[in-house]
Design a protein around this nucleic acid. Structure first.
Lengths: 337, 337
DNA sequence: CCAGGAACTGGGAGCGCTTCCAGTTCCAGG
DNA sequence: CCTGGAACTGGAAGCGCTCCCAGTTCCTGG
């Protein structure tokens, strides 16, 4: 900026004039709409090139009533929740799908009151064509904001409470069940659960899956040892578990971060993994591979999760009525169990 | 959506009518500009509340010629570069600063040609008020796009080549030097470097810092063993190093991901850390704390990095001329060195 | 009591684009 | 040679907001 002459951006009028056509024709040519003769279309293209014209997205948005953008909002009382690499992968997927639909991605970290207020305004204004909501907690104010919004909203992961109309989720119950069954099948009988926040549906569902599998295997489920999906919370939960149940021989952690934390505590406590205690995580993020020992974990297709969420939103924006989606998980065995 | 009556959003005109004032007064009241009597201001506020009015950001943007949004673009030939938790932290910082300035954050992963083209259009249209550019490689097409743009651009990390007018960077040379000096001060004499991509300035600068410190300590710098900032590349680089220089006793890795990879290879090779080989990383991401052993590393203030980048952009957007910023690093000693 | 400002008000002209629609051109068929 | 309709064109009306500016009201001091 600033280096160049402060000449204004050329407008469509100037393009039209230069091409010797009317503004409407120029507009149609640009959006390659019908009713433009080949000759004029080319004239417009030439003028565009000569002038270095780029349409003003704002004006276009105003005229079409389409913002040309979708928002991804990540809830949480603390922006650091976003540090979880999970979201980065979701974004990669969503970004790609949005790019295909020529929509921009707006990212909102709705942590502060101010942030939530801005999301509320976004939902009620026409600042975006649709919104993807993630990491909602029980009674999250965003839930009701979303209900009241006259704008397409897709949920990334079902929230606690009534099931929304449009969502993408992962088979949390099934994944947790599979992980626990695996542990049981390897002869582990005293398997504890480090579960995620129980004010999220993912936290609850994964615990349910664990409990179901334990009962089905004729084992006693442990009460939930709650963490908050972070590594330190996993380490802390593991410490409590070790103190209360020194004889445990397996742990299902509701995500890899907490699994890594559990591994750390076990290492510090001198309990070899998996010889003494087997550990299974959930997510299959990079940390699972890096952990020592590498973490057996429930893989979920995170990039696909983001992609499908965005595709669903695009469908909604285009007036279709897509069906909710539940993505499958699969167990990835490494050496921790 | 869809549940409610399809009534249109109320407009400012309706608010004005309801409040019994003119549109201009309503507008001024909304933007709490001067020249509005207390009574009318309150009347407008009441009408806004009754109607549930929310200003249309697009119309506002068109009229003010302010998009109300800033873009953060992450370059790279592969969107997976974004999976590096580094960016998540930058975003947390940037998002907060942007929120203070009431700007939305648009995120662009400029990986594909199409993605780059869209960024180019963004830069030339008025789709955003300014742009933050990150992860630029040598000869990155985005560099020249940015030069030609008549729009505020802040670089996050200097690119290879001419120094841009506005940037935020971290003291890569100093950090790398400190890390290497530390290794030398602990008696390590055969210290190798796993460096980052040498087509990035961060990769080069960190290697320079390493080399400077080695020479200053009277030691022989190793030639750069290049990785791409990912964990597997660090593991691979470490393997090569071990094969070529089995007698090395220290490694400076240009980031924590690669440091973690190096740790993994060393573990698999049965070389105890730090007893046999000391390892230092760079970044101080979560992985450094989780690694086994926890990684001594060069801390960089990543959230501040994002925050300052955004603040600089906001200053630019407001017509100021901020000065570039280089953030300090500091060594965090854990047990890997 | 009046002139002169300060404070306030609201009409109207945009911002740059899309799109409706009335009008024009063109051509095949009668 | 004329008619009717398809193909195309361009003027004009917005989209919803801001902001200039001319006009009005309301004080104050002389």
């Amino acid at each position: 900026m600033a280096e160049n002459a402060p000449r204004r951006q050329p407008t469509l009028d100037e393009v039209a004039e230069r091409a010797g056509v009317s503004r409407s024709v120029a507009s149609r040519a640009l959006n390659n709409a019908p009713h433009v003769s080949r000759a004029k279309r080319e004239a417009v293209e030439r003028a565009v090139r000569q002038l270095g014209y780029v349409p003003n997205p704002t004006a276009r948005a105003l005229a079409t009533r389409r913002a040309g953008a979708a928002a991804l909002v990540v809830s949480g009382e603390d922006p650091s929740i976003f540090a979880d690499p999970f979201f980065a992968q979701v974004i990669v997927g969503a970004s790609g799908a949005l790019e295909e639909a020529d929509l921009h991605l707006m990212l909102c970290l709705a942590a502060s009151d101010r942030g939530r207020k801005r999301v509320g305004e976004l939902l009620r204004s026409k600042g975006a064509d649709g919104v993807m909501l993630m990491a909602l907690r029980e009674d999250d104010p965003l839930i009701r904001m979303a209900e009241e919004a006259e704008m397409p909203v897709v949920f990334g992961g079902r929230p606690v409470g009534p099931v929304p109309r449009w969502y993408v989720d992962v088979d949390n119950v099934g994944g947790a069940r599979e992980a626990t069954e695996y542990l049981a099948s390897r002869g582990r009988t005293r398997v504890a659960a480090i579960c995620g926040r129980l004010d999220t549906e993912a936290g609850r569902a994964r615990y349910r899956g664990y409990r179901d599998a334990m009962l089905a295997a004729g084992l006693d489920p442990f009460p939930p040892q709650e963490g908050d999906f972070t590594e330190p919370s996993g380490a802390a939960a593991m410490a409590v578990l070790l103190a209360e149940h020194p004889d445990l021989d397996g742990v299902f952690a509701a995500n890899d971060n907490m699994g890594a934390g559990a591994l750390r505590t076990l290492r510090e406590a001198g309990r070899p993994v998996p010889a003494d205690v087997a550990v299974v995580g959930f997510d299959d993020l990079a940390v699972a591979r890096i952990a020592d020992p590498p973490l057996t974990t429930v893989h979920q297709p995170i990039t696909a999760f983001g992609r499908e969420m965005a595709r669903m939103l695009v469908a909604l924006v285009n007036g279709q009525d897509p069906t909710p989606l539940i993505l499958p998980t699969r167990l990835v065995t490494r050496s921790s169990a």
